[in-house]
Design a protein around this nucleic acid. Structure first.
Length: 602
RNA sequence: CGGGGUGUAGCGCAGCCUGGUAGCGCGCUACGUUCGGGACGUAGAAGUCGGAGGUUCGAAUCCUCUCACCCCGACCA
């Protein structure tokens, strides 16, 4: 007969490795990094490489356990692929170029080049290609929990951005996008599964629209743990609840017009060696919102080559993805030498360069202003003079560019990053607010990018062979651990949610040489274990103060203190990590019940 | 890759300017006194001063080169 009962672990502090420290290493900056090191969860081995000590590994296993539960429930199947891959796999899909130096390469004894996998689209597609030939075998959704390798230019913040990290990656395969068995259906299932996963983990998170990045593909959503120390900026519509990554977030309608009388004669001013907006702004005493930032971008040869001149207000940031959407093909920051050779005075370019040098002009609505409507007078603009070391004041769109603004070479479109206060793209009158987050999950609709590149075709009902439609779904397991700490800690240490805590209950024994105390600890632990709790008994021969400090530091949700004080009243002291005051005395016989109550009231 | 910074005991740091053979706090070991929010005393152990080369009678200290790591940015997710 199968056992359906789960017994929790009982372990003793003296028999595991929890090297806590009073002080964090000097080079740690992020709260999660400091606390995870201080609490004995992780140890740095090299830049972006860490040991996961017993406590960390327990929590990581809890995270992946929840991930497996929900993935399996959503119809996905777990497998495991190698981390070491022949380099040709990446050359085939050009991801060796896309990932660039982020791809770890190593040469084996025969001189063959291999890669340490940053993700597994190529490997799984190759594997599926050899296993699936008919539409009847699809859809399928396969996943693994595995170590990934990315040679980050700048690993940082402990586990938040490592070069070696644990990831759950899932890949789904379909013969159609819509309908039963289609990509969209699985994508939605994954979105639900991820929502369940992060909810069960006890995390405060947001689902946001996102850019796909080098993974490729179309629709994509990110799951962000909300916390102020996060690297990502999230924008939210105050009315609809719409949220998006700053890279992706659209901006609502903004009125614009190039028309308006000049505020005066064009005046050229010397700005020697002033490359940055900040320097120029101070030097010529014009505030950034009254300056135009002009960026030169190049179109690659595949799309006909040529230049794009993008103009935004100087206090705004251009968004290359949005420029791509505006003009219809991808652009990249121009090579400085090439752009100079073409006639652009890099650092001192004005919108006029689009006309004189010959380029498409793309202008953000906030920059496409002839009149300063708020002030009811002509808009004062300063910008580059198209001459080295010079800028101009009182730039006027109509006077400077005339009909060029009406030509097919000029486009006015949203090409900048959104920021707090901008109009929402989802509801008229609503504005956007800004928050920060840590990306812990990302789901993508890949489409046929990999299947086409690798020739993964299957036959449909009529015998035609079509490229398989794919989706992929990632969760940063080790990053989730760190993000949870970023989100949930106080001055004394980590505050684990019950679901991710390495142990649910910590039993602090005041006098370990008192046999009665130890016997109580063992009995209580046994009872809790039978109820499914993981229990850590602090049986160290240490003073109470240190033990309490360590207890708070490692953040176990429930602490039971066994000492004379409570025992004299026939019980033990019960205290949750989130409780501020004194603990309550709980009778020996009701401890398990009290702990169960604590869990269910969470 | 650009800018800034740091490498001295397990951790946090001083010593370097002005060369003379390494010290403080925490932690660790032993003993004693303590014992409910990081105790105290006494005695100890522990360091290729990141590495290589150079200058010098003598280098943690001065010079050159190099490596590693951290932070900001670029980049990336």
């Amino acid at each position: 007969m199968l056992s359906t009962r789960r017994f929790g672990d009982i372990q003793r502090w003296s028999q595991t490795l929890i090297p806590t420290a009073k002080e964090a290493p000097a080079d740690a900056e992020a709260p999660s990094h400091k606390l995870l090191v201080r609490a004995g969860f992780i140890r740095r081995v090299g830049a972006g490489i860490y040991d996961y000590l017993p406590l960390a590994w327990r929590t990581l296993n809890k995270i992946s356990g929840i991930v497996r539960d929900e993935m399996n429930a959503a119809g996905a199947c777990e497998m495991l692929m190698p981390a070491l891959e022949p380099f040709e796999f990446f050359e085939g899909t050009k991801r060796d170029v896309d990932y660039g130096d982020n791809l770890f390469r190593l040469t084996d004894r025969h001189g063959r080049v291999n890669a340490l996998a940053p993700t597994h689209e190529e490997i799984i597609t190759e594997m599926m290609k050899g296993s699936i030939a008919s539409y009847k075998q699809l859809p399928l959704n396969l996943y693994q929990v595995q170590t990934k390798f990315r040679d980050e230019a700048r690993p940082r913040s402990g586990l938040l951005r490592g070069r070696e990290f644990i990831m759950k990656d899932a890949y789904s395969f379909h013969t159609k996008a819509e309908g039963a068995g289609g990509l969209t259906e699985t994508y939605e299932k994954m979105r639900t599964a991820y929502t369940n996963i992060f909810t069960r983990c006890g995390l405060d998170f947001s689902i946001v629209e996102a850019e796909a990045g080098p993974i490729g593909g179309s629709a994509s959503h990110e799951f962000m743990v909300n916390c102020e120390t996060g690297e990502d900026t999230i924008l939210r519509c105050s009315k609809t609840g719409y949220a998006a990554n700053v890279e992706k977030c659209g901006i609502g309608e903004r009125a614009w017009s190039f028309d308006g009388e000049p505020s005066g004669d064009l005046e050229t001013v010397p700005t020697p060696g002033m490359a940055s907006i900040e320097d120029v702004s101070k030097f010529i005493k014009v505030k950034a919102p009254n300056m135009l930032k002009t960026i030169v971008l190049s179109i690659d040869a595949e799309h006909g080559g040529g230049w794009v001149v993008a103009v935004v207000r100087a206090d705004h940031e251009v968004n290359e993805g949005k420029i791509k959407d505006a003009i219809g093909f991808p652009v990249a920051m121009a090579d400085e030498t090439e752009a100079k050779a073409a006639g652009f005075a890099i650092g001192f370019v004005s919108p006029c360069a689009a006309k004189t040098v010959g380029a498409k002009l793309v202008v953000d609505p906030d920059a496409a202003q002839g009149m300063d409507t708020a002030k009811g007078k002509p808009y004062f603009w300063a910008t580059g003079a198209d001459t080295h070391d010079h800028h101009v004041k009182r730039f006027n769109w109509r006077r400077e560019l005339g009909d060029f603004l009406d030509s097919e070479n000029t486009i006015v479109a949203d090409i900048r990053n959104a920021r707090a206060g901008d109009p929402s793209p989802k509801a008229a009158g609503a504005t956007l607010t800004e928050g920060r987050g840590v990306e812990v999950g990302h789901i993508f609709q890949l489409g046929t990018k990999y299947s086409e590149a690798m020739g993964f075709l299957v036959q449909d009902e009529s015998g035609d062979r079509n490229a398989v439609i794919m989706g992929c779904y990632g969760i940063g397991v080790s990053r989730t651990l760190a993000a949870c700490v970023e989100m949930s800690h106080d001055d004394n240490g980590i505050v684990w949610p019950m679901a991710l805590a390495p142990y649910h209950v910590l039993i602090t024994v005041m006098k370990i040489d008192n046999e009665e105390h130890m016997a109580h600890a063992t009995n209580i632990a046994k009872g809790l274990s039978e109820a499914g709790f993981d229990v850590l008994i602090d049986d160290r021969d240490d003073r109470p103060g240190s033990k309490f400090k360590d207890a708070d530091l490692i953040g176990i949700p429930i602490r039971l203190t066994i000492g004379d004080k409570a025992l004299d009243q026939g019980g033990v002291e019960f205290k949750q990590r989130t409780d501020t005051g004194k603990g309550e005395i709980v009778a020996l016989g009701s401890i398990t019940t009290r702990c169960i109550d604590a869990v269910s009231s969470q």
